[in-house]
Design a protein around this nucleic acid. Structure first.
Lengths: 252, 252
DNA sequence: TTGGGCGCTATTGTATACATTTCGGGGTGA
DNA sequence: TCACCCCGAAATGTATACAATAGCGCCCAA
Protein backbone atom coordinates (compact mmCIF):
# COMPACT_ATOMS: atom_id res chain seq x y z
CA UNK A 1 0.00 0.00 0.00
CA UNK A 2 2.92 2.29 -0.46
CA UNK A 3 1.57 3.20 -3.86
CA UNK A 4 1.31 6.93 -3.88
CA UNK A 5 -1.53 7.00 -6.30
CA UNK A 6 -4.81 5.07 -6.21
CA UNK A 7 -4.63 4.55 -10.01
CA UNK A 8 -8.35 3.97 -10.05
CA UNK A 9 -9.01 7.62 -9.49
CA UNK A 10 -7.40 10.71 -10.91
CA UNK A 11 -5.80 12.70 -8.16
CA UNK A 12 -6.35 16.09 -9.62
CA UNK A 13 -8.23 16.92 -6.47
CA UNK A 14 -5.28 16.06 -4.25
CA UNK A 15 -3.17 18.78 -5.72
CA UNK A 16 -5.10 21.37 -7.66
CA UNK A 17 -1.91 22.57 -9.30
CA UNK A 18 -0.44 19.15 -10.01
CA UNK A 19 0.83 18.83 -13.54
CA UNK A 20 -2.43 18.04 -15.23
CA UNK A 21 -1.95 14.80 -17.10
CA UNK A 22 -0.04 13.20 -14.29
CA UNK A 23 2.22 11.53 -16.83
CA UNK A 24 5.35 12.70 -18.54
CA UNK A 25 5.79 16.04 -20.21
CA UNK A 26 9.35 17.31 -20.07
CA UNK A 27 8.91 20.98 -20.67
CA UNK A 28 6.44 21.45 -17.85
CA UNK A 29 8.10 18.85 -15.69
CA UNK A 30 11.15 20.84 -14.77
CA UNK A 31 8.94 23.81 -14.05
CA UNK A 32 6.88 21.65 -11.74
CA UNK A 33 9.97 20.41 -9.97
CA UNK A 34 11.08 23.97 -9.54
CA UNK A 35 7.80 24.73 -7.81
CA UNK A 36 8.33 21.81 -5.49
CA UNK A 37 11.87 22.92 -4.81
CA UNK A 38 10.66 26.36 -3.86
CA UNK A 39 7.83 24.95 -1.78
CA UNK A 40 10.15 22.86 0.35
CA UNK A 41 12.81 25.54 0.43
CA UNK A 42 10.32 28.14 1.62
CA UNK A 43 8.98 25.80 4.26
CA UNK A 44 12.48 25.31 5.59
CA UNK A 45 13.38 28.99 5.52
CA UNK A 46 10.15 29.97 7.22
CA UNK A 47 10.71 27.39 9.93
CA UNK A 48 7.58 25.46 9.07
CA UNK A 49 9.94 22.55 8.60
CA UNK A 50 12.33 22.50 11.52
CA UNK A 51 15.91 21.26 11.50
CA UNK A 52 16.02 17.53 11.97
CA UNK A 53 12.61 16.97 10.41
CA UNK A 54 12.60 13.88 8.26
CA UNK A 55 11.59 14.21 4.63
CA UNK A 56 10.39 10.83 3.44
CA UNK A 57 10.36 10.41 -0.29
CA UNK A 58 7.07 8.51 -0.43
CA UNK A 59 5.30 11.13 1.64
CA UNK A 60 6.58 14.02 -0.45
CA UNK A 61 5.80 12.15 -3.65
CA UNK A 62 2.21 11.71 -2.54
CA UNK A 63 1.83 15.30 -1.38
CA UNK A 64 3.08 16.78 -4.63
CA UNK A 65 1.57 14.16 -6.89
CA UNK A 66 4.73 13.10 -8.68
CA UNK A 67 6.85 10.00 -8.42
CA UNK A 68 9.80 9.50 -6.12
CA UNK A 69 12.13 10.10 -9.04
CA UNK A 70 11.24 13.76 -9.25
CA UNK A 71 11.31 14.16 -5.48
CA UNK A 72 14.78 12.70 -5.29
CA UNK A 73 15.97 15.23 -7.81
CA UNK A 74 14.60 18.06 -5.72
CA UNK A 75 16.03 16.63 -2.52
CA UNK A 76 19.42 16.25 -4.10
CA UNK A 77 19.39 19.87 -5.13
CA UNK A 78 18.41 20.94 -1.64
CA UNK A 79 21.17 18.76 -0.27
CA UNK A 80 23.81 20.41 -2.45
CA UNK A 81 22.68 23.75 -1.05
CA UNK A 82 22.96 22.24 2.42
CA UNK A 83 19.37 22.90 3.32
CA UNK A 84 18.72 19.20 3.74
CA UNK A 85 21.08 16.46 4.75
CA UNK A 86 21.08 13.21 2.78
CA UNK A 87 22.20 10.33 4.96
CA UNK A 88 22.92 7.20 2.89
CA UNK A 89 20.46 4.46 3.62
CA UNK A 90 18.54 6.68 5.97
CA UNK A 91 17.04 9.37 3.80
CA UNK A 92 16.65 13.11 3.84
CA UNK A 93 16.13 15.46 6.75
CA UNK A 94 16.26 19.19 7.24
CA UNK A 95 19.86 20.09 8.01
CA UNK A 96 20.74 20.83 11.60
CA UNK A 97 23.74 23.12 11.23
CA UNK A 98 26.67 22.54 13.54
CA UNK A 99 28.16 25.33 15.62
CA UNK A 100 31.18 25.35 13.36
CA UNK A 101 28.93 25.65 10.32
CA UNK A 102 27.15 28.58 11.89
CA UNK A 103 30.43 30.37 12.49
CA UNK A 104 31.50 29.74 8.91
CA UNK A 105 28.28 31.00 7.40
CA UNK A 106 28.43 34.28 9.25
CA UNK A 107 32.10 34.73 8.51
CA UNK A 108 31.38 34.15 4.84
CA UNK A 109 28.51 36.58 4.90
CA UNK A 110 30.59 39.29 6.53
CA UNK A 111 33.24 38.89 3.88
CA UNK A 112 30.96 38.72 0.87
CA UNK A 113 28.13 41.03 1.81
CA UNK A 114 30.38 43.84 2.98
CA UNK A 115 32.34 43.52 -0.24
CA UNK A 116 29.14 43.64 -2.25
CA UNK A 117 28.13 46.86 -0.54
CA UNK A 118 31.32 48.51 -1.69
CA UNK A 119 30.50 47.51 -5.24
CA UNK A 120 26.93 48.56 -4.81
CA UNK A 121 27.41 52.18 -3.77
CA UNK A 122 28.94 52.92 -7.15
CA UNK A 123 26.06 51.71 -9.25
CA UNK A 124 22.83 51.79 -7.31
CA UNK A 125 20.02 53.96 -8.65
CA UNK A 126 17.36 55.96 -6.91
CA UNK A 127 14.65 53.50 -7.91
CA UNK A 128 16.61 50.62 -6.47
CA UNK A 129 17.09 52.48 -3.21
CA UNK A 130 13.36 52.97 -3.05
CA UNK A 131 12.80 49.29 -3.63
CA UNK A 132 15.16 48.37 -0.81
CA UNK A 133 13.40 50.78 1.49
CA UNK A 134 10.10 49.18 0.62
CA UNK A 135 11.45 45.75 1.45
CA UNK A 136 12.83 46.96 4.75
CA UNK A 137 9.49 48.55 5.51
CA UNK A 138 7.51 45.42 4.74
CA UNK A 139 9.82 43.44 6.94
CA UNK A 140 9.41 45.83 9.83
CA UNK A 141 5.65 45.72 9.46
CA UNK A 142 5.58 41.93 9.42
CA UNK A 143 7.70 41.97 12.53
CA UNK A 144 5.31 44.29 14.31
CA UNK A 145 2.42 42.04 13.41
CA UNK A 146 4.30 39.07 14.82
CA UNK A 147 4.24 37.33 11.48
CA UNK A 148 7.54 35.73 12.18
CA UNK A 149 7.72 33.44 9.17
CA UNK A 150 6.88 36.29 6.82
CA UNK A 151 9.45 38.51 8.48
CA UNK A 152 12.13 35.85 8.20
CA UNK A 153 11.52 35.51 4.50
CA UNK A 154 11.48 39.26 3.94
CA UNK A 155 14.69 39.67 5.85
CA UNK A 156 16.38 37.13 3.63
CA UNK A 157 14.79 38.82 0.62
CA UNK A 158 16.39 42.11 1.63
CA UNK A 159 19.85 40.62 1.78
CA UNK A 160 19.23 38.72 -1.42
CA UNK A 161 18.09 41.80 -3.29
CA UNK A 162 21.10 43.70 -2.04
CA UNK A 163 23.33 41.03 -3.52
CA UNK A 164 21.45 40.90 -6.78
CA UNK A 165 21.69 44.67 -7.27
CA UNK A 166 25.48 44.48 -7.09
CA UNK A 167 25.33 43.05 -10.60
CA UNK A 168 27.06 39.75 -9.97
CA UNK A 169 24.72 36.80 -10.23
CA UNK A 170 27.35 34.35 -9.09
CA UNK A 171 27.89 36.19 -5.83
CA UNK A 172 24.19 36.81 -5.47
CA UNK A 173 23.40 33.12 -5.65
CA UNK A 174 26.04 32.42 -3.05
CA UNK A 175 24.53 35.01 -0.75
CA UNK A 176 21.12 33.45 -1.33
CA UNK A 177 22.42 30.15 -0.10
CA UNK A 178 24.09 31.72 2.89
CA UNK A 179 20.87 33.50 3.82
CA UNK A 180 18.90 30.29 3.62
CA UNK A 181 21.40 28.54 5.81
CA UNK A 182 21.29 31.47 8.21
CA UNK A 183 17.61 30.87 8.61
CA UNK A 184 18.35 27.29 9.61
CA UNK A 185 20.98 28.47 12.04
CA UNK A 186 18.49 30.86 13.62
CA UNK A 187 16.04 28.01 13.97
CA UNK A 188 18.54 25.96 15.92
CA UNK A 189 20.48 28.50 17.93
CA UNK A 190 18.23 31.55 17.98
CA UNK A 191 15.94 32.52 20.80
CA UNK A 192 12.21 32.40 20.44
CA UNK A 193 11.18 35.94 19.63
CA UNK A 194 14.45 36.85 17.99
CA UNK A 195 14.30 37.32 14.29
CA UNK A 196 17.99 37.87 13.89
CA UNK A 197 18.04 41.17 12.09
CA UNK A 198 17.31 44.21 14.23
CA UNK A 199 14.28 46.13 13.14
CA UNK A 200 15.94 49.35 12.13
CA UNK A 201 19.24 48.01 10.85
CA UNK A 202 18.14 47.53 7.29
CA UNK A 203 16.78 51.03 7.05
CA UNK A 204 19.98 52.50 8.40
CA UNK A 205 21.89 50.49 5.85
CA UNK A 206 19.86 52.00 3.05
CA UNK A 207 20.59 55.44 4.48
CA UNK A 208 24.32 54.81 4.25
CA UNK A 209 23.93 53.47 0.73
CA UNK A 210 22.00 56.53 -0.31
CA UNK A 211 24.65 58.80 1.16
CA UNK A 212 27.25 56.90 -0.85
CA UNK A 213 29.24 56.05 2.27
CA UNK A 214 30.54 52.76 0.98
CA UNK A 215 33.12 52.30 3.72
CA UNK A 216 30.62 53.02 6.46
CA UNK A 217 28.03 50.78 4.83
CA UNK A 218 30.45 47.88 4.66
CA UNK A 219 31.42 48.34 8.30
CA UNK A 220 27.77 48.59 9.27
CA UNK A 221 26.98 45.35 7.46
CA UNK A 222 29.75 43.57 9.36
CA UNK A 223 28.42 44.90 12.66
CA UNK A 224 24.91 43.95 11.63
CA UNK A 225 25.93 40.38 10.97
CA UNK A 226 28.06 40.32 14.09
CA UNK A 227 25.11 41.35 16.19
CA UNK A 228 22.97 38.62 14.70
CA UNK A 229 25.64 36.04 15.38
CA UNK A 230 26.14 37.37 18.90
CA UNK A 231 22.43 37.02 19.62
CA UNK A 232 22.64 33.28 19.07
CA UNK A 233 23.38 30.86 21.84
CA UNK A 234 25.85 28.62 20.13
CA UNK A 235 27.02 25.88 22.39
CA UNK A 236 28.99 23.15 20.82
CA UNK A 237 26.62 20.22 21.07
CA UNK A 238 23.18 21.48 22.00
CA UNK A 239 21.09 18.39 21.55
CA UNK A 240 22.17 16.51 18.54
CA UNK A 241 24.25 13.83 20.25
CA UNK A 242 23.56 13.81 23.96
CA UNK A 243 26.55 11.98 25.34
CA UNK A 244 24.87 10.11 28.17
CA UNK A 245 28.13 8.74 29.49
CA UNK A 246 29.26 12.29 30.04
CA UNK A 247 26.00 13.65 31.37
CA UNK A 248 25.47 10.89 33.92
CA UNK A 249 29.09 10.36 34.77
CA UNK A 250 28.34 11.20 38.41
CA UNK A 251 26.01 8.23 38.70
CA UNK A 252 28.25 5.69 37.13
CA UNK B 1 19.11 -2.08 -29.59
CA UNK B 2 19.60 0.94 -27.39
CA UNK B 3 19.92 -1.35 -24.40
CA UNK B 4 23.26 -0.62 -22.87
CA UNK B 5 23.62 -3.99 -21.28
CA UNK B 6 23.26 -7.43 -22.81
CA UNK B 7 21.44 -8.67 -19.70
CA UNK B 8 22.43 -12.21 -20.54
CA UNK B 9 25.98 -11.58 -19.52
CA UNK B 10 27.42 -9.86 -16.48
CA UNK B 11 29.42 -6.85 -17.48
CA UNK B 12 32.00 -6.94 -14.76
CA UNK B 13 34.61 -7.20 -17.46
CA UNK B 14 33.56 -3.95 -19.04
CA UNK B 15 34.66 -1.95 -16.04
CA UNK B 16 37.16 -3.70 -13.81
CA UNK B 17 36.45 -1.28 -11.01
CA UNK B 18 32.70 -1.18 -11.44
CA UNK B 19 30.84 -1.70 -8.20
CA UNK B 20 31.35 -5.43 -7.93
CA UNK B 21 27.90 -6.98 -7.91
CA UNK B 22 26.66 -4.72 -10.65
CA UNK B 23 23.38 -4.51 -8.81
CA UNK B 24 22.32 -2.39 -5.91
CA UNK B 25 24.45 -1.71 -2.86
CA UNK B 26 23.77 1.65 -1.31
CA UNK B 27 26.79 2.16 0.85
CA UNK B 28 29.29 1.65 -1.91
CA UNK B 29 27.04 3.19 -4.48
CA UNK B 30 27.43 6.76 -3.38
CA UNK B 31 31.15 6.26 -3.17
CA UNK B 32 31.12 5.01 -6.74
CA UNK B 33 29.09 7.98 -7.88
CA UNK B 34 31.57 10.25 -6.18
CA UNK B 35 34.33 8.65 -8.23
CA UNK B 36 32.37 9.26 -11.39
CA UNK B 37 31.71 12.83 -10.37
CA UNK B 38 35.41 13.42 -9.85
CA UNK B 39 36.30 11.66 -13.09
CA UNK B 40 34.07 13.91 -15.14
CA UNK B 41 34.94 16.98 -13.13
CA UNK B 42 38.66 16.36 -13.60
CA UNK B 43 38.21 15.79 -17.30
CA UNK B 44 36.46 19.13 -17.60
CA UNK B 45 39.00 21.02 -15.48
CA UNK B 46 41.91 19.52 -17.39
CA UNK B 47 40.31 20.47 -20.70
CA UNK B 48 40.05 16.88 -21.84
CA UNK B 49 36.37 17.63 -22.17
CA UNK B 50 36.01 20.98 -23.87
CA UNK B 51 33.20 23.50 -23.40
CA UNK B 52 30.25 22.59 -25.55
CA UNK B 53 31.02 18.86 -25.53
CA UNK B 54 27.87 16.82 -25.26
CA UNK B 55 27.54 14.34 -22.41
CA UNK B 56 25.05 11.69 -23.42
CA UNK B 57 23.61 9.73 -20.56
CA UNK B 58 23.69 6.37 -22.31
CA UNK B 59 27.31 6.76 -23.30
CA UNK B 60 28.40 7.74 -19.80
CA UNK B 61 26.32 4.97 -18.28
CA UNK B 62 28.06 2.42 -20.45
CA UNK B 63 31.54 3.84 -19.82
CA UNK B 64 31.16 3.77 -16.05
CA UNK B 65 29.12 0.62 -15.88
CA UNK B 66 26.14 1.98 -14.00
CA UNK B 67 22.64 2.83 -15.08
CA UNK B 68 21.45 6.17 -16.34
CA UNK B 69 19.91 6.84 -12.95
CA UNK B 70 23.28 7.22 -11.31
CA UNK B 71 24.68 9.21 -14.19
CA UNK B 72 21.81 11.65 -14.02
CA UNK B 73 22.52 12.23 -10.36
CA UNK B 74 26.14 13.04 -11.14
CA UNK B 75 25.20 15.29 -14.04
CA UNK B 76 22.74 17.17 -11.91
CA UNK B 77 25.40 17.81 -9.32
CA UNK B 78 27.79 19.05 -11.99
CA UNK B 79 25.04 21.25 -13.35
CA UNK B 80 24.43 22.88 -9.97
CA UNK B 81 28.12 23.71 -9.84
CA UNK B 82 27.78 25.13 -13.33
CA UNK B 83 30.38 22.86 -14.84
CA UNK B 84 27.82 21.33 -17.16
CA UNK B 85 24.69 22.86 -18.61
CA UNK B 86 21.47 20.86 -18.54
CA UNK B 87 19.20 21.90 -21.39
CA UNK B 88 15.69 20.48 -20.95
CA UNK B 89 14.89 17.96 -23.62
CA UNK B 90 18.35 18.26 -25.06
CA UNK B 91 20.64 16.83 -22.45
CA UNK B 92 23.91 17.74 -20.79
CA UNK B 93 26.94 19.47 -22.21
CA UNK B 94 30.06 21.03 -20.79
CA UNK B 95 29.25 24.62 -19.91
CA UNK B 96 30.48 27.33 -22.24
CA UNK B 97 30.75 30.32 -19.93
CA UNK B 98 29.52 33.64 -21.23
CA UNK B 99 31.66 36.75 -21.13
CA UNK B 100 29.48 38.11 -18.36
CA UNK B 101 29.94 34.92 -16.41
CA UNK B 102 33.68 35.17 -16.80
CA UNK B 103 33.67 38.69 -15.44
CA UNK B 104 31.55 37.62 -12.49
CA UNK B 105 33.73 34.68 -11.59
CA UNK B 106 36.88 36.76 -11.48
CA UNK B 107 35.17 39.52 -9.55
CA UNK B 108 33.96 36.96 -7.04
CA UNK B 109 37.40 35.43 -6.77
CA UNK B 110 39.02 38.79 -6.15
CA UNK B 111 36.58 39.52 -3.38
CA UNK B 112 36.68 36.16 -1.68
CA UNK B 113 40.26 35.05 -2.17
CA UNK B 114 41.77 38.35 -1.09
CA UNK B 115 39.56 38.27 1.97
CA UNK B 116 40.66 34.74 2.74
CA UNK B 117 44.28 35.79 2.61
CA UNK B 118 43.67 38.34 5.29
CA UNK B 119 42.20 35.61 7.49
CA UNK B 120 45.00 33.27 6.57
CA UNK B 121 48.00 35.32 7.65
CA UNK B 122 46.82 35.16 11.23
CA UNK B 123 46.65 31.39 11.47
CA UNK B 124 48.93 29.76 8.96
CA UNK B 125 51.70 27.50 10.27
CA UNK B 126 55.20 26.84 9.00
CA UNK B 127 54.24 23.37 7.81
CA UNK B 128 51.36 24.74 5.83
CA UNK B 129 53.59 27.33 4.21
CA UNK B 130 55.93 24.54 3.19
CA UNK B 131 53.02 22.61 1.70
CA UNK B 132 51.95 25.62 -0.34
CA UNK B 133 55.48 26.09 -1.58
CA UNK B 134 55.57 22.46 -2.64
CA UNK B 135 52.35 22.88 -4.58
CA UNK B 136 53.63 26.00 -6.29
CA UNK B 137 56.84 24.16 -7.15
CA UNK B 138 55.03 21.19 -8.64
CA UNK B 139 52.92 23.51 -10.71
CA UNK B 140 55.94 25.36 -12.03
CA UNK B 141 57.62 22.09 -12.91
CA UNK B 142 54.58 20.79 -14.75
CA UNK B 143 54.46 24.05 -16.63
CA UNK B 144 58.09 23.75 -17.70
CA UNK B 145 57.45 20.24 -18.94
CA UNK B 146 54.52 21.52 -20.96
CA UNK B 147 52.13 19.24 -19.10
CA UNK B 148 49.37 21.74 -19.45
CA UNK B 149 46.52 19.67 -18.05
CA UNK B 150 48.57 18.76 -14.98
CA UNK B 151 49.56 22.37 -14.50
CA UNK B 152 45.98 23.55 -14.74
CA UNK B 153 44.91 21.14 -12.07
CA UNK B 154 47.80 22.04 -9.79
CA UNK B 155 47.10 25.71 -10.20
CA UNK B 156 43.54 25.16 -9.10
CA UNK B 157 44.81 22.95 -6.29
CA UNK B 158 46.98 25.80 -5.02
CA UNK B 159 44.08 28.21 -4.83
CA UNK B 160 41.87 25.52 -3.32
CA UNK B 161 44.38 24.67 -0.63
CA UNK B 162 44.80 28.32 0.18
CA UNK B 163 41.08 28.56 0.76
CA UNK B 164 40.93 25.39 2.81
CA UNK B 165 43.72 26.56 5.11
CA UNK B 166 41.73 29.65 6.00
CA UNK B 167 39.59 27.38 8.14
CA UNK B 168 36.24 28.00 6.54
CA UNK B 169 34.94 25.04 4.61
CA UNK B 170 31.97 26.94 3.27
CA UNK B 171 34.16 29.57 1.65
CA UNK B 172 36.66 26.94 0.55
CA UNK B 173 33.99 25.02 -1.33
CA UNK B 174 32.88 28.20 -3.01
CA UNK B 175 36.42 28.95 -4.10
CA UNK B 176 36.70 25.39 -5.41
CA UNK B 177 33.72 25.99 -7.63
CA UNK B 178 35.06 29.31 -8.81
CA UNK B 179 38.40 27.73 -9.66
CA UNK B 180 36.72 24.99 -11.65
CA UNK B 181 34.71 27.53 -13.56
CA UNK B 182 37.85 29.55 -14.13
CA UNK B 183 39.33 26.57 -15.86
CA UNK B 184 36.36 26.50 -18.18
CA UNK B 185 36.73 30.20 -18.83
CA UNK B 186 40.38 29.70 -19.71
CA UNK B 187 39.40 26.96 -22.11
CA UNK B 188 37.07 29.30 -23.96
CA UNK B 189 38.76 32.68 -23.78
CA UNK B 190 42.40 31.84 -23.00
CA UNK B 191 45.16 31.71 -25.54
CA UNK B 192 46.82 28.46 -26.45
CA UNK B 193 49.96 28.38 -24.36
CA UNK B 194 48.57 30.51 -21.59
CA UNK B 195 47.93 28.75 -18.36
CA UNK B 196 46.41 31.72 -16.65
CA UNK B 197 48.54 31.94 -13.55
CA UNK B 198 52.00 33.40 -14.04
CA UNK B 199 54.75 31.01 -13.13
CA UNK B 200 56.23 32.89 -10.22
CA UNK B 201 53.11 34.51 -8.84
CA UNK B 202 52.19 31.73 -6.48
CA UNK B 203 55.66 31.63 -4.99
CA UNK B 204 55.64 35.35 -4.42
CA UNK B 205 52.29 35.02 -2.74
CA UNK B 206 53.68 32.48 -0.29
CA UNK B 207 56.54 34.88 0.41
CA UNK B 208 54.11 37.58 1.40
CA UNK B 209 52.14 35.14 3.52
CA UNK B 210 55.26 34.02 5.30
CA UNK B 211 56.21 37.63 5.98
CA UNK B 212 52.80 38.15 7.51
CA UNK B 213 52.03 40.99 5.12
CA UNK B 214 48.33 40.38 4.97
CA UNK B 215 47.48 43.66 3.27
CA UNK B 216 50.12 43.20 0.63
CA UNK B 217 49.15 39.58 0.08
CA UNK B 218 45.53 40.53 -0.47
CA UNK B 219 46.51 43.23 -2.94
CA UNK B 220 48.84 40.84 -4.70
CA UNK B 221 46.06 38.28 -5.05
CA UNK B 222 43.79 40.87 -6.63
CA UNK B 223 46.52 41.83 -9.07
CA UNK B 224 47.21 38.18 -9.76
CA UNK B 225 43.60 37.53 -10.65
CA UNK B 226 43.42 40.77 -12.60
CA UNK B 227 46.36 39.73 -14.72
CA UNK B 228 44.77 36.37 -15.45
CA UNK B 229 41.54 38.05 -16.47
CA UNK B 230 43.43 40.59 -18.55
CA UNK B 231 45.24 37.82 -20.40
CA UNK B 232 41.94 36.52 -21.72
CA UNK B 233 40.45 37.69 -24.94
CA UNK B 234 36.90 38.15 -23.85
CA UNK B 235 34.81 39.39 -26.70
CA UNK B 236 31.15 39.40 -26.10
CA UNK B 237 29.99 36.63 -28.40
CA UNK B 238 32.99 34.71 -29.70
CA UNK B 239 31.21 31.84 -31.34
CA UNK B 240 28.36 30.71 -29.22
CA UNK B 241 25.53 32.64 -30.85
CA UNK B 242 26.68 34.38 -33.99
CA UNK B 243 24.01 36.99 -34.34
CA UNK B 244 23.48 36.86 -38.07
CA UNK B 245 21.05 39.72 -38.00
CA UNK B 246 23.79 41.92 -36.62
CA UNK B 247 26.58 40.57 -38.79
CA UNK B 248 24.67 40.91 -42.03
CA UNK B 249 22.79 44.03 -41.10
CA UNK B 250 24.32 45.81 -44.11
CA UNK B 251 22.61 43.39 -46.47
CA UNK B 252 19.16 43.61 -44.96
C1' DT C 1 15.95 22.18 -57.83
C1' DT C 2 14.08 24.03 -53.84
C1' DG C 3 10.84 24.44 -50.04
C1' DG C 4 7.86 22.52 -46.88
C1' DG C 5 5.62 18.85 -44.49
C1' DC C 6 6.08 14.29 -42.38
C1' DG C 7 7.70 10.29 -40.20
C1' DC C 8 11.68 8.02 -38.04
C1' DT C 9 15.40 7.49 -34.90
C1' DA C 10 17.95 8.76 -31.13
C1' DT C 11 17.77 10.64 -26.57
C1' DT C 12 15.81 12.47 -22.69
C1' DG C 13 11.98 12.54 -18.91
C1' DT C 14 9.14 9.99 -15.79
C1' DA C 15 7.28 6.18 -13.45
C1' DT C 16 7.55 1.77 -11.60
C1' DA C 17 9.60 -2.70 -10.14
C1' DC C 18 12.90 -4.97 -7.52
C1' DA C 19 17.00 -5.53 -4.42
C1' DT C 20 19.04 -3.96 -0.18
C1' DT C 21 19.49 -1.87 3.97
C1' DT C 22 17.87 -0.25 8.45
C1' DC C 23 15.24 -0.14 12.48
C1' DG C 24 12.16 -2.09 15.83
C1' DG C 25 9.80 -6.07 18.12
C1' DG C 26 9.74 -10.39 20.02
C1' DG C 27 11.55 -14.57 21.37
C1' DT C 28 15.09 -17.60 23.33
C1' DG C 29 18.86 -18.78 26.21
C1' DA C 30 21.95 -18.05 29.89
C1' DT D 1 16.19 -10.16 33.99
C1' DC D 2 19.23 -8.91 30.64
C1' DA D 3 21.66 -9.55 26.44
C1' DC D 4 21.67 -11.21 21.97
C1' DC D 5 19.81 -12.75 17.67
C1' DC D 6 16.60 -13.23 14.22
C1' DC D 7 12.89 -11.78 11.62
C1' DG D 8 9.68 -8.51 9.41
C1' DA D 9 8.08 -4.05 8.03
C1' DA D 10 9.30 0.26 6.09
C1' DA D 11 12.08 3.11 3.44
C1' DT D 12 15.87 3.88 0.43
C1' DG D 13 19.04 2.73 -3.74
C1' DT D 14 19.31 1.11 -8.30
C1' DA D 15 17.88 -0.49 -12.61
C1' DT D 16 14.71 -0.87 -16.21
C1' DA D 17 10.46 0.00 -18.94
C1' DC D 18 7.77 3.16 -21.21
C1' DA D 19 6.26 7.77 -22.94
C1' DA D 20 7.34 12.03 -25.08
C1' DT D 21 10.23 15.07 -27.40
C1' DA D 22 13.86 16.98 -30.46
C1' DG D 23 16.71 16.47 -34.51
C1' DC D 24 17.17 14.88 -39.02
C1' DG D 25 16.51 13.10 -43.42
C1' DC D 26 13.27 11.85 -46.82
C1' DC D 27 9.68 12.38 -49.91
C1' DC D 28 6.61 14.97 -52.54
C1' DA D 29 5.00 18.88 -54.91
C1' DA D 30 5.56 23.17 -57.28
Amino acid sequence: MTSHRPTSQPDSTDQPFASASGKAGSGKGVQRQDEIYRAISDAVIEHRLKPGARLREDALAEVFGISRTGIRKVLQRLALEQLVTLTPGKGASVTRPSAEEAREVFEARRLVESGLLAMLTRRITADELKELRALAGEEQQALQEHEQSVAIKLSAAFHNRLAALAGNQTLARFVDQLCSRSSLILAVYGHAGNLGCECSDHNQLVDLLQAGESEQAAIFMCRHLDSIEASLSIDDAPEEAPDLRDIFSAYQ
